[in-house]
Design a protein around this nucleic acid. Structure first.
Lengths: 244, 244
DNA sequence: ACCTGAACACCGTTCAAGT
DNA sequence: ACCTGAACACCGTTCAAGT
C-alpha cells in the first residue's frame, strides 16, 4: 500500500540544500507551488507548468518529491503556516476562539485551492498540527465536560471549513469572471431570478435576506459568519451549564 | 463569459427521449455517471470511461451535454434527489433539523465524490433547491430573530458539510486500502505515533479520545456528530431567548 | 547526486465527416 | 438528428541516459 502522507516518509531526506546546479530544493519548489496555485488555481496547476516556472525540466522536480500529491501536501502545510496562533493560554477563551476561527476563514478565502486540498489529505504537517493543538487548547478552556470537547471542536471548525469553502469558491468565480463581488452577485441573482424554479426560492427567502441586511456581499458574509460563530459559542456555553 | 451552471442554460433541450439509435438520453447518461462515480471515484471518472460504459464513442456524450462540468452538475443534483425531506411543517423543529442533518451527512458519506462537487458548483439544481427550502422552513420555525436565520442555517449545514467531507474522505481511503475502518484507523494511528512530531499531539489528546469513548470508529464519529448537533441546537435556543 | 529526453498511457474538447 | 474518427493540446509518471 502507498504511504498515506508525505509527512510519514522515512527519515532520510534526499539532498542537502547547497550546490545544486539549478539551485533547487524542497522549499523553493514548495514556494513556487503556492505562488502558482494562488495565481492560476488548482485546476491549472501541473508539474510541467511548475517546472517551467523554475526554469527546469518537468522531471527534475521528481528528484525532490515522489508525486504531485506529495507536493500538494507540502503546499497545504506551508499555507497553514500563515495562521497566527495565540501564544498564551490566558485571556477569554471566547476571544481566542473567535480569533482562530477568523484566521482560518481568512486563510481559506485567501487561498481558494486550500479547501479542496484540506479535504483531500491527512493534514498532519507541522503547521496543521500546530493549528490543531491551538484549537484544542482553546476549546479545553471553555470548561466543557471531557466527552464533549472533540465534538465541540468539530462543530466550530467544520463549520468554518464549510463556510470558508463556499466563500472561497465564490471569490474564485468572481476573479475568473473579472468582476467585483457585488457585480457578480447581482448578475447571478438576475440569472437565477429568470429561471422560474430558482426564482421561487429566491422569492421565499427575500425577507430573510432583507432582515440580515448588509449593503455589500462582503458585509452579508461577515454578518452571517459572525452570527453563526456567536451561535456556536452560545451553544458551548449552554453545554457547559447543562451537559445533558 | 461562460454560463455559470447547467441549470441556467436556455429553455430548449436537445432531443426527445425516444428513437435514438443507441438509446442515449440525459437521464441515462446521468445515472451512468453516478454509478461510475460511486464505483471508481471522482479522480478516475472520465468522459472516455463513461462512453465505454454506455457502449458508445467518447464524443456521443457531447451531443447531450456541453462539458464535463455540466455532467457533474447533473450528477450532483441527482444525488441530492436521494435526500428524504420532511413533508409537513409540524412536529418539533429540533427533530426535523436533526433528521435533515443526518440525511445530509449520510448522503455525503455514501457518495464521497459529492462533497468536492458541492464545493465546486452552484448547487441550484431542482433537488438541491428542494433541500435548501426544506432547511429554510425548518430553521424558520425555531423562532430566531429574522436577522439570524441565514447565519443559523450556515452554522448547522456548513458544519454538516465539513463533517461529512472529512468523514467521506476517510471512508474513501479505507475503501482504497481494502481494510475495515477500524483496521485503517489503527494502522494510521500506529504510523502517526511513530513520527515524533505527530506523536506529541496524539499524546496530548489521549484524554479527550478516552472521554469521548466509543469502541469503533463508527461509534466515535457518531458521538462527535451527535454532540456537535446538540450543541448547535442549544446555540439556536440560546439565540432565541437572548438575541443579542 | 542531480538533471534531461523520449516515451507511455492517459485526459477534455474541436471539428469535419458520416448515416 | 445523432454518432464517429482523427486530431490538438495537454496531463502524471517511468525509465534509461547523460553529466
Amino acid at each position: 500500500m502507498a504511504r498515506a502522507s508525505v509527512w510519514l516518509e522515512g527519515k532520510a531526506r534526499k539532498g542537502g540544500r547547497t550546490g545544486q546546479p539549478s539551485g533547487l530544493d524542497r522549499d523553493r519548489i514548495t514556494s513556487a507551488t503556492v505562488r502558482l496555485l494562488d495565481a492560476d488555481g488548482l485546476d491549472k496547476f501541473s508539474m510541467r507548468r511548475l517546472a517551467a516556472e523554475l526554469n527546469v525540466t518537468a522531471m527534475s522536480v521528481y528528484w525532490y518529491v515522489d508525486t504531485k500529491d506529495d507536493l500538494l501536501e507540502l503546499a497545504l502545510d506551508e499555507a497553514f503556516g500563515e495562521l497566527r496562533l495565540p501564544d498564551a493560554d490566558d485571556g477569554d477563551w471566547r476571544t481566542q476562539l473567535r480569533a482562530l476561527a477568523t484566521e482560518y476563514r481568512a486563510l481559506l478565502v485567501r487561498h481558494p485551492w486550500l479547501s479542496p486540498l484540506a479535504g483531500r489529505y491527512l493534514n498532519i504537517g507541522p503547521h496543521s498540527l500546530a493549528f490543531s493543538r491551538a484549537v484544542q487548547r482553546v476549546v479545553r478552556r471553555a470548561g466543557l465536560p471531557a466527552h464533549g470537547v472533540t465534538g465541540a471542536i468539530s462543530a466550530v471548525f467544520q463549520f468554518v471549513y464549510g463556510y470558508g469553502t463556499i466563500e472561497s469558491h465564490f471569490a474564485a468565480r468572481v476573479a475568473a469572471a473579472g468582476m467585483t463581488a457585488d457585480e457578480y452577485f447581482d448578475s447571478t441573482m438576475d440569472a437565477v431570478t429568470e429561471a422560474p424554479d430558482t426564482a421561487r426560492i429566491i422569492e421565499e427567502s427575500r425577507d430573510l435576506m432583507a432582515a440580515r441586511g448588509g449593503d455589500t456581499v462582503a458585509e452579508m458574509l461577515d454578518r452571517d459568519f459572525t452570527f453563526a460563530l456567536d451561535l456556536l459559542i452560545a451553544g458551548i456555553e449552554a453545554k457547559v451549564s447543562r451537559p445533558a
